[in-house]
Amino acid sequence: MWEALSQKLYFHSIDALLAMDGHGTFVWSAYLITVVVVAAILIAPRRRQRRFLRRLAGEIKRARGDRANVREDI
């Protein structure tokens, strides 16, 4: 299967893939920016959720008077 796939590859070396006949800078920068933005919109809600849950857990512990175990590294 890998044989058949590699037959269909358009680029035959890493250099050719990076250069893309002179258009490499444009194509790769566009893809890089997209990957960064997509990663940001996937990670941001998870971070927000984790921080919120940690803060809430801290509040609950404080309310119980269990100060020793409150994590302040939010």
Binding site: L9, F11, M20, D21, H23, V27, A30, Y31
Partner: peptide
């Protein structure tokens, strides 16, 4: 899109965007 398609006739590889 990046590896297994040929370039576009007029725009070359930049069309991969």
């Amino acid at each position: 899109g990046l590896l297994f398609t040929g370039p576009e006739a007029r725009q070359g590889n930049s069309y991969r965007i």
